[in-house]
Nucleic acid binder design. Structure first.
Lengths: 177, 177
DNA sequence: CTCGGTTTTGCACTCAGTTGCAAAAGGTGC
DNA sequence: GCACCTTTTGCAACTGAGTGCAAAACCGAG
């Protein structure tokens, strides 16, 4: 139930076509909820059918650009969702399973993979830091909306830092740092 | 592709029936890869068909307990998987989307939900700490297998601590801590 | 204007995870 | 032994996400 609300949010920030949404997802919302263009088009169709968004006028046709905007019902649905209650989704971390498997059958070949993951996390961390420097020069003094957006980014930064530190620790445990 | 390997690992630690596996998942592997009994039975069937595990002798019958053990091919497959390369799965964090939605339509009702999440994370953290105190009195001096198992738990502890701290920070941002 | 490449939209299929439910065996009280 | 409850196994249908691919419109070169 998250993708439709992510799309509503993005459309409220700026009415867009499916392809624009896809591009914007790739550089912001997608960090915490990736989506392909196929998913997005499907969801736009459902949202339109549910009368939460509407396409700006023009003859509907395949291959023809369609710009969407959020209707009042959509805004209301989003507001409800913000206040709704939903449990955190279960953690699913294949790397933990692999460590556990390694504890049983031996850790042959594992260290290299851990280093690769550390590298990937480091790259993502650098990307987040860039965005932070560019878009949030003074988060503390900003209005609530901006402070919330910064909090999201801060979560990403914190997570990546955590994984990098943890991976380094495990590599130490394997005598391979 | 993770569940079958999780099951192989669990069966190597101790041959079990489907129901036993389900129970063991609930208190250990399931923290990082939850699975229902239906999933587990389905996967046991596939693993048996692939000749990676076998049921201990006895007439196969529905409703009748079947104990499984890992075959050499299964152990080999697991070893390969430990050394395999697999990208971290994309992050999917609905709470981040809700913050972002809140930045657009207002944060009405959000703080309560954040407190609830903080509470849930605190409970899980406490559970992890209990396990740590009970099962890992001296992780540093233990053999590699045990150190790896402790690293898994340490990841869980670190994650929960991180979320608790971050949620507290956001609540502060909302002027609601 | 028409041909070919690009953009934009969208369908169809697969796969993993979730939920609901039922069938077969085993155990317990009468 | 039989009536009933519990344990254990398993099927079936659904949902959300991922992948491949194609159709319609658009656009620039000649």
């Amino acid at each position: 139930m998250s993708l439709p609300h992510a799309i509503l949010t993005a459309l409220l920030e700026k009415p867009s076509s499916g392809l624009e949404l896809t591009r914007r997802f790739d550089k912001s919302i997608g960090f915490f909820w990736p989506a392909t263009h196929q998913q997005i088009y499907r969801e736009l169709g459902r949202l339109e059918e549910a009368a939460l968004i509407r396409a700006l006028p023009g003859p509907p046709a395949r291959g023809r650009r369609r710009e969407y905007e959020v209707l009042d019902a959509g805004r209301a649905a989003l507001r409800d969702w913000v206040a709704a209650s939903e449990d955190p989704r279960p953690v699913r971390e294949p790397l933990m399973l692999r460590l556990r498997a390694a504890a049983v059958v031996g850790s042959e070949g594992l260290a290299e993979e851990l280093r690769r993951h550390r590298q990937l996390h480091a790259e993502r961390l650098a990307a987040y830091r860039d965005i932070e420097a560019r878009d949030f020069p003074d988060p503390a003094g900003a209005p609530e909306g901006v402070r919330l957006q910064h909090a999201i980014l801060a979560a990403g930064i914190g997570m990546e830092e955590f994984w990098i530190g943890w991976l380094t620790g495990v590599l130490g445990t394997l005598g391979e740092d």
